[in-house]
Design a binder for these strands. Sequence first.
DNA 1: GTCTATAACCCGATAGAC
DNA 2: GTCTATCGGGTTATAGAC
Lengths: 186, 186
Amino acid sequence: MDSRDRLIEAMSDLLWERGYSATSPREVRERSGVGQGSMYHHFPSKRDLGIAAIKHNCDALLPPTRDVLLGSESPMERLTAYLSREHEPLLGCKVGRLTQDPEVANDSEMLAPINEAFAQVHSMLVKVIGEAVEHKEIPDHLDPDRLADLLMVTIQGGYVLAIAAQDRGPFDRARLAALDLLNAHL
Amino acid sequence: MDSRDRLIEAMSDLLWERGYSATSPREVRERSGVGQGSMYHHFPSKRDLGIAAIKHNCDALLPPTRDVLLGSESPMERLTAYLSREHEPLLGCKVGRLTQDPEVANDSEMLAPINEAFAQVHSMLVKVIGEAVEHKEIPDHLDPDRLADLLMVTIQGGYVLAIAAQDRGPFDRARLAALDLLNAHL
DNA sequence: GTCTATAACCCGATAGAC
DNA sequence: GTCTATCGGGTTATAGAC
């Protein structure tokens, strides 16, 4: 792995652990083992490296979601799998957490890959929900767009409550409530 | 308002606008108009002022929630009001946003008031959901604890998606989906 | 309680040699 | 591409007079 990749890797990890604002170029250098001159050769500013690392984190999050949502099980089984997937809620979401960093939230270039990643998950969910309606697993009076957003905020909001409580309980209960409500219609 | 209160007020606003890590004592001084010596007289460190301001923000959030949830309408109407309340999702939640700041999330004294505030909202919600079950507005096979967490994560997660999209749409759709699912049982 | 001055360190970035 | 040296400014305090 060359310097450029090691810088992105280190910044990506630090974005997750400490956020963008709170991460300094020095920490990135120390963790990656790349020197000062090298770093500013590959990335003219902290922001440029930040954008590259955000894209990296967003890209890493999509394949597992795709695997779960575009599998061969029934639509409802796939939605259940999406909500039941392994998570470490106390660590926060690699992508969602960034939106709460004002320096990121006020920078459209940083927000763009995050929005794009969420939009892709959203459209996959809408597709699966549509299939679930066809299979009569979900009643057709429910709006797929709204439902997709509800499933996504359940995960994202679950991180917030779990961190506040330092306990994954709220995260797990919210997921179960969403499943209870969906399955109540069968 | 004395210096101490003005410091807390300024820090509270900055916590919302910029987060804890990204807020410097200097900004607090400039916004509050309180001098350096004064500031360190009242609060021996940034962290002490931060804790006071977090408590302040948490306290400010409870009364409006109480008004909505402990009103005189039917339980279901109150739950609907909780989800339908005015929000500016693009600004983020004064309390929830703090959980995504690693410096806050790793400090149990800072987390404590946040957790306490969420716990109080949770217990109010459980109470109202229990009443809704009694009034046959919600079926009794749904778990009130889980449901309360789902309603809370809907709000908190809505902020995350709305900021990512720079559009309140996801926030509003998630709230509507939650209401759709609850009302589908009537 | 509030003021001004100062400290020691870190930040994000640049310069220029190799 | 990578290195070392350096920059101007900001950060979180501390000191001590008023």
